[in-house]
């Protein structure tokens, strides 16, 4: 079987990638990350293995692009005393989704991948496991740990 035209990749996975980007970034930045993701994917597409999990591949690229953008934004921001608090320099209004995005950024790499791949992108744990190089049970655990931490952080950070 041959390669699927990239136009189909975009129409099949565009909404999922946008959801991932929106989970990590505010909407305007998310649009940029979406474009960066598909541009990078288009560049690499001819070399993608025919049996690759395209959704997983795109989620990984999207997460990397979003992480890059967060880093770039934080570098551009005025450094704060403890060097960790990215919230202090962020004077955008505190909306619930902004709070949740901040909470998401505090998760470990594995937890974040698991939460985004399963809860945001809707990938089954078997596929999340392949993405993490682990077993489905371990992937499920990572997602559960991530959600537990999100719940705790989100509650802590929530205004009022």
């Amino acid at each position: 079987m041959g390669m699927v035209p990239f136009s189909s990749v975009v129409s099949d996975h565009g909404p999922t990638v946008l959801r991932v980007c929106r989970a990590m970034l505010e909407p305007t930045e998310a649009d940029d990350a979406w474009s960066e993701t598909f541009l990078a994917a288009l560049r690499a597409y001819p070399d993608l293995a025919r049996d690759a999990n395209v959704a997983g591949w795109l989620v990984t690229i999207a997460r990397n692009k979003c992480t890059d953008m967060i880093r770039r934004r934080n570098r551009a921001a005025i450094p704060v005393a403890d060097g960790l608090d990215t919230v202090a320099t962020d004077d955008r209004p505190h909306t619930p989704d902004a709070e949740l995005r901040r909470a998401l950024a505090t998760l470990s790499d594995r937890q974040q991948t698991a939460v985004i791949a399963h809860h945001v992108a809707g990938m089954p744990y078997a596929e999340v496991a392949t993405l993490l190089g682990t077993t489905p049970a371990a992937a499920r655990r990572s997602a559960a740990d991530g959600i537990a931490k999100l719940r705790a952080t989100y509650r802590e950070d929530a205004p009022e």
């Binding site: 946008l18 989704d97 949740l100 939460v115 809860h119 945001v120």
Partner: peptide, 20 residues
């Protein structure tokens, strides 16, 4: 203010792109 909505609910509602 004592009880937050379930994080999962927030995840699915807040992160579902409304304008997409």
């Amino acid at each position: 203010g004592q009880q937050n909505p379930s994080t999962e609910n927030v995840l699915s509602t807040v992160f579902a792109p409304t304008t997409s």
